[in-house]
Write a protein that binds this DNA or RNA. Structure first.
Lengths: 340, 340
DNA sequence: TTGAAAGCGCTACCAG
DNA sequence: CTGGTAGCGCTTTCAA
């Protein structure tokens, strides 16, 4: 009898057949018992024997075999490339995972660094997820969507700046963030605006539309806009501050609070008064932004709740033929503090 | 019979049998061609026919079926509970994912919020991963490890404060972080030390050993230590600062830079001079810490590189019988700035 | 050079 | 109430 678990490496995992043998029943019965199949009544003694056998062997069902047989899984795939830092995103992520789990989905985050769009879609399709929720770090083309659909994905949902054809979309309009920041600066009397563009790769999906937003707001007021590339380090910030007076700007949108804080400090160290000489606005409304002096003005972004998104996933999975919807969920507003 | 591919929702994903039929060959041949099986020579025209058929149908192999047949997968499971924010962690994560991918593993991050240790281990085991790399947010018990082993996991590796029995471990000694901070404060002449304990859940694995570390350093010098619970918000920080003089502390370790900055600002606003009256030290060496005035002293933590860890995973998978090793990889050192 | 068939672990029918 | 059995999609002998 194998009651002492001495399977360091050689022995294969126990299967339902092993459990059946040990319990002296058939594999079918094992399946019925362990899944509490309602349609079949099994005697209590048998149930106990099966349960004990399973326990003793340390039996764990084989998810792949199960979903192969079932013809579908309850896996929700969340592709990610670069995990975006920041409390906003991680809160969202955690909420989403938690909500999906309580709807009985298996959440799988699949890292897809350095794959192109179709390559990635293929890799995801191999796992036959019931739903794919793309957070927008990895591109998703109509071809990719089609491929996922044919591989059994009931729901393909994109969360990000734009809607992708054929998917349900949760559009988070980054343009609006820029527009709000731009309008605020204009309102504060600024006419020559800089916009920080992060030098780090992968942030273009956010930074480019934000720049567009600032442009739109500026144009309406006859203000000018200059994009300013900046890596998130002190030296480049210092260098940028050193040539600030040549740039002749009286307001700047810092992409987000972190870049804004970096730049603001560099400006102050270079003797440029904030907000008198140059107003600074960030976004994300981080706690740290309130710790600097002057306190950082910012665009507060209310991201969609993870729970809402989970519900959308579930609805689309159950009703796969609903036409792709476009949901707009990004309430943002300016928080005016002292830096502008 | 399904002759016309109406892929919208109803039609199932094409299988290798469908490809075989369309190409006029057997399923075996399809498999040989698509996997470039070296042991078998297939004529070039046949190969082309198969490839074209696969292309036309949008065929994607079924990962579950494949690994079921193969008896093993190349899935590396990264369980996560609350995704820890912070650039340190995300850089590490990205590196790890990238490195594992280039070693041809499929990296799957599995969110396990609100599950207890053994429940979680079971859920992971169902996926039959070849390796599990636990980042320490979810507890892993010896029972859990045993279960994973029996389910075919060749490598179970824990990254975190302590080693778990039966696993290879990458120990990141959080005690040391606290000890360094404590020693530094003592060295700066401080004798009554506060230690911030984050009020947010899930951080205990870090905060408790760090507190222990400070205690050890303080004890050696005859200094006292007081733990201070603090939520990451301005109000509680203000409240703590308001009763600061009653606490009668002349030095504080802020858990990390973020909490340290929050507290430092609250202290300054309450009229307590930093570092004269109270010295403040954080950890993580964040960029923002250098933007406040006084600049924040901090404990710089050099985490293990993701690449190194990936190599360890690979080595253990190939050589599963190597005795569990304990690797120590956490070079940390104090960066003395102006707040202490 | 290709095909037929077995079987990975599981569940769902249908008999007994 | 329980057991036999087919078959999910795939790879891999063994035969032709």
């Amino acid at each position: 009898m194998s009651q002492s678990p001495k399977q360091s490496a050689g022995s294969p995992a126990p299967t339902s057949a092993d459990v059946a043998r040990l319990a002296g029943v058939s594999r079918a019965t094992v399946s019925y018992v362990l899944n509490n199949t309602a349609a079949v009544r099994i005697s209590e003694p048998t149930r106990r024997r099966v349960r004990e056998a399973a326990e003793e062997l340390g039996y764990v069902p084989h998810a792949a075999a199960r979903s192969l047989r079932a013809g579908h899984s309850r896996m929700v795939l969340l592709p990610t490339a670069h995990v975006p830092v920041g409390p906003l995103y991680s809160r969202f992520f955690n909420e989403l995972q938690w909500a999906l789990r309580s709807l009985d989905y298996t959440v799988v985050q699949y890292g897809s660094v350095g794959m192109d769009a179709d390559e990635a879609a293929r890799a995801w399709a191999e796992l036959r997820p019931v739903a794919v929720v793309s957070l927008g770090h990895v591109e998703l083309t109509p071809t990719g969507v089609e491929l996922l659909r044919r591989s059994g994905a009931k729901a393909v949902i994109t969360v990000g700046p734009q809607q992708v054809e054929g998917t349900h979309a949760l559009v988070m309009d980054q343009t609006r963030v820029g527009r709000l920041a731009g309008a605020h600066l204009v309102e504060r009397g600024r006419r020559r605006l800089g916009v920080v563009m992060p030098g780090e790769p992968g942030l273009e999906v956010f930074s480019v539309p934000r720049l567009e937003g600032v442009r739109a707001a500026a144009e309406a007021a006859g203000a000018t806009v200059v994009p300013l590339s900046l890596r998130y380090e002190e030296e480049p910030a210092g260098a940028l501050a050193a040539r600030w007076r040549d740039l002749d700007l009286d307001g700047v949108f810092g992409y987000n609070d972190e870049y804004a804080m970096l730049l603001m400090r560099a400006l102050q160290d270079a003797g440029i008064a904030v907000p008198e000489e140059t107003a600074v606005v960030g976004s994300d409304d981080l706690v740290v932004g309130r710790l600097l002096r002057p306190r950082l003005s910012t665009v507060h972004i209310d991201m969609v709740g993870g729970g809402e998104l989970a519900e959308l996933v579930d609805r689309v999975v159950r009703e796969p033929d609903t036409a792709p919807e476009r949901h707009e969920r990004l309430d943002s507003y300016v928080v005016h503090r002292e830096s502008s």
